[in-house]
Design a protein around this nucleic acid. Structure first.
Lengths: 342, 342
DNA sequence: GTGCTATTGGGGAACGGTTCCCAATCGTGA
DNA sequence: TCACGATTGGGAACCGTTCCCCAATAGCAC
């Protein structure tokens, strides 16, 4: 490896010398710790500005905090995650904490494990894990090491905080809406990740779909394609569903991304939306509202969820240990992709 | 702050004791450094496995490497970035390096600076900066600290590597395509970030649009909306363009995201695509191919660009200091969103 | 003046790795 | 047998911070 002639960093020692004080004093000023006079504070701050000092994060990590929040996302392709991250960023912006994101790979347990280890090893002060697919035990183990907020799982734990929307209400809204429009052959696209632990949101959405169908005497029309919540998954799932006989008149995709794929499959089959087939999604990511897509979807306010997750993490870092569960009530946003059946 | 009763970490000292060797030896094994026998290597590896040791990243960062690659993205909402990251992840997967992503905020210089500082402070071994909007001097300064690969800028530098597509060819392809279809009133949506430094890709695309229009004697029909490459930007830009008199018959949006927004605006104006207005984008992110969107776009193989960026970074970390410039030749993908004018 | 507490500042030991440098051993050719 | 270079292993300094202490001083009630 070449040794780059990187100009030596300005360290806390340089600042201390320049301000004619001890490194301890500088450290105290930096951390707003107790035991420094106003005069000292001013003198040190001046030296910091003058030298352009920035704390060395790795050195901090050796002893204390890193002022870093780790975010685990299944992947960054899902536009709904962008809404969540916007909320998180907003909440953290004034706090001095920096969010770093890592892709967990979602459906591959080994990749997911590697990603979560990477954050723990990097000594982040808190972790925000979006839609973890691993076992609960692994979450609890991690929570023992690092403050943890989980988004989108329904199992309760005393060790970490949960942010979620009420997927049962959300799925109910969609299915009831389609039934009210007159549909009977309503199909569903779900995500098959890891045998559908009942705590995963995709399980709840699927189970609720089945329940509501049954409650309306439509049990015989239950029709599920278990692929994934991605665009490819939605596409494959919809192709599979449309090939069944009789063909469904409505498709409830478990996510907006899957709904995009489903829309593509419907168009490709030379069918129209909503003329021949109605399509509904879930998440109401910002794109779904665009006029040429106009997808009926369930809104769950990703921005608020991200913002809340940020707040909960800061609280936990600040010392709270009691677990908090924050639930958002979803609403249905009706757009042009759903209509009465042909 | 509560002190969590985290079980003390397994350190390199524990491993050394367990294997009855020095910490130096363990360190050498970990880094595949010179000066350890095969027997030593085996003994140490056994101890590592037995104790479940994982290197403490922060401690490494103090003297050695962090095995971390920092990625700066304007924001994660752009689906094209997901293609890039997929390529990068693939390239890094076998290398032992972990990518961490930070949002730079794109259009806000202060936020961008803060994000890039955050990565430097966290002592990443290399930085992959997608579409930086800052001054070149800032890039060169950073390159002095940390190996750097920049994506999507056309200014040359001897200090960092560049990965880009030939935006001149790409823009040419689109405009020529629209002209060949018979369009004359072709409008363009660009990104106004920071006074259009000529090195930014949006400047090249816009300038090329003007050049090709002029070359075909269509200078009088040049019509540009300078908003942003986001969906909102495309929406606002298209509304602005459609309100002009005479109305354009084709819109060349500088990015797919902007094209999505433009599509929405066209639909909202009760015009059809491509009947009344043709729309073309740039990037050919995976979604644009979906049948119900079917956007004509310029393909620039984001996966390959991400993969290459990863390789270049690893090379630079390995010691290369000569600057490399990797350019992708884009191709036009014609879909249903473009057709002859009414 | 004395004893006490509150406030302010600093000394120095960690933290967990890496790396410089030196010592011991071994093999080999003269 | 000896000199010498190559190989292997380890001791100890060092990276930049934080934090546990202790010291000095000031203020105050008696």
């Amino acid at each position: 490896m070449v040794t780059r002639d990187r100009q030596r960093r300005v360290t806390i020692t340089d600042v201390a010398q320049h301000a004619q004080v001890s490194t301890t004093a500088v450290s105290k000023v930096l951390r707003n710790a107790y035991g420094v006079s106003e005069a000292m504070r001013a003198k040190v701050r001046a030296a910091i500005d003058e030298l352009g000092y920035r704390p060395h994060n790795a050195a901090r990590a050796m002893r204390g905090r890193t002022f870093t929040i780790g975010v685990l996302l299944p992947h960054i392709r899902n536009p709904f995650f962008a809404d969540i991250i916007d909320g998180l960023t907003e909440e953290l912006s004034a706090s001095g904490y920096q969010a770093i994101m890592v892709q967990s790979g979602g459906r591959d347990p080994v990749a997911e494990r590697r990603a979560s280890d990477a954050l723990v090893d990097r000594q982040v002060d808190g972790i925000f894990w979006v839609a973890p697919a691993c076992a609960r035990a692994q979450l609890e183990q991690m929570a023992g090491d690092t403050p943890l907020v989980v988004l989108g799982r329904h199992d309760r734990s005393a060790l970490y905080d949960c942010v979620l929307d009420d997927d049962e209400i959300g799925a109910e809204l969609v299915v009831e809406h389609l039934i009210a429009l007159g549909h009977r052959r309503i199909a569903h696209i779900t995500d098959s990740t890891r045998g559908r632990s009942t705590a995963l949101l995709q399980s709840i959405r699927a189970t609720t779909y089945e329940r509501v169908m049954t409650e309306h005497g439509l049990a015989e029309h239950i029709s599920i394609a278990a692929t994934s919540y991605s665009e490819e998954g939605g596409y494959e799932g919809a192709r599979e569903l449309l090939a069944r006989d009789p063909r469904p008149t409505a498709i409830f995709a478990g996510s907006d991304q899957a709904a995009f794929g489903a829309l593509a499959a419907v168009h490709e089959a030379n069918l129209t939306v909503p003329g021949d087939v109605s399509v509904a999604g879930y998440d109401n990511a910002r794109v779904t509202g665009l006029a040429h897509i106009a997808l009926t979807s369930v809104d769950q306010d990703g921005g608020l969820m991200g913002k809340t997750a940020g707040r909960l993490l800061l609280e936990r870092i600040g010392g709270r240990s009691a677990a908090v569960r924050f639930s958002v009530t979803p609403t249905l946003v009706t757009r042009r992709s759903t209509a009465p059946p042909p």
